[in-house]
């Protein structure tokens, strides 16, 4: 890939909200004093009457969103992933998940790429928390264009959806006008030596790793698995069958996230050796985002190393 435009997935979120707001009067947006950072401020600017700041009170915000959904609105409730999924976990579980309400959670600043703010804000547990809630759809788009499409798809889906976005500007590789299908993975590169299944910003890293591996004669199949739940079983099983080796890559703990979802599926339906790349049961550290990502091995170079070793 040559010079590419960089945008954060949260930018795609903000843009999609505005576009959805123009089309649908039942969309309302809630934020917890982070409208500038989560990009819901873009929606607020155009639709001030449909944007509700809840103050720094995420627990209240999630339940207010639940109440709004019972009144016929489709609320998008936003905060940083740490506070949306962590602070308000039980509110989401009991007041949104259990009654299966049509609430969308737009969680930004997920993962290690938050960077300088450090461990207190680097949420690498949200997939695990949200996946465990019955009926919850969990999505982590790879770039801003996919993010925008995913938000629109989430609006169309009746039921709770957790969308994880990033703070960091990352390469945009989806074409404008891309349509997102919830629960469907996307093959970024064909190959049969090893399957690399990634989501979020790790997709671009995996694609880069695929190029590095190609130079060494290893043909990797690269898959963007942006829907963590429900996972695209067919695509994973086919990849495991064709390649015989699977690597998962996520900006998340190796506990409870994409890696575990893939392992659970394969261990029951098609036992296949898997290596999980992610955060290995550790807390984050402060630093510039790409340096932090490299520190934790969340980069193309490390993926390529793991794949090369795996293919020996």
């Amino acid at each position: 890939m040559a010079e590419v435009k960089k945008l954060a997935t949260r930018d795609g979120y903000g843009k999609a909200l505005v576009e959805l707001g123009r089309e649908h009067s039942n969309i309302v947006v809630l934020d917890a004093d982070l409208a500038g950072s989560t990009k819901t401020g873009m929606f607020k600017k155009e639709f001030p009457d449909r944007h509700f700041n809840c103050g720094i009170a995420e627990a209240d915000m999630m339940c207010v969103a639940a109440g709004l959904s019972t009144a016929g609105f489709v609320p998008f409730a936003s905060s940083f992933a740490m506070f949306a999924s962590g602070r308000a976990y039980e509110q989401i579980r009991n007041s949104i998940g259990y009654p299966h309400l049509n609430v969308k959670i737009g969680a930004t600043h997920g993962g290690m790429s938050v960077g300088e703010d450090g461990a207190s804000h680097q949420c690498c547990e949200d997939f695990a928390l949200m996946r465990s809630i019955p009926g919850m759809t969990v999505i982590c788009p790879a770039d801003a264009v996919e993010a925008e499409a995913a938000v629109k798809a989430a609006y169309e889906l009746e039921g709770p959806v957790y969308l994880r976005f990033g703070r960091l500007a990352v390469p945009v590789f989806h074409e404008e006008g891309f349509t997102f299908a919830i629960g469907k993975g996307e093959i970024m590169r064909e190959g049969t030596d090893v399957a690399i299944i990634a989501n979020g910003l790790m997709v671009y890293e995996a694609v880069q790793a695929g190029e590095l591996l190609e130079q060494k004669g290893i043909h990797a199949r690269i898959i963007n698995m942006s829907t963590v739940k429900p996972i695209d079983e067919e695509l994973v099983l086919q990849a495991a069958k064709d390649c015989g080796r699977v690597i998962t890559c996520e900006e998340h703990s190796i506990i409870g996230g994409l890696g575990e979802a893939v392992c659970s599926l394969l261990s029951e339906k098609l036992p296949t050796p898997v290596r999980r790349i992610g955060v290995d049961d550790r807390f984050g550290i402060s630093g510039p985002a790409y340096e932090v990502l490299e520190h934790f091995g969340l980069c193309a170079k490390h993926i390529a190393e793991v794949a090369e070793d795996f293919c020996k």
Binding site: V64, A66, G67, T70, F73, Q91
Partner: peptide, 9 residues
């Protein structure tokens, strides 16, 4: 909180 959301709605 849910009641607040209903009232706001």
């Amino acid at each position: 909180s849910c009641a607040c959301g209903m009232a706001l709605g």
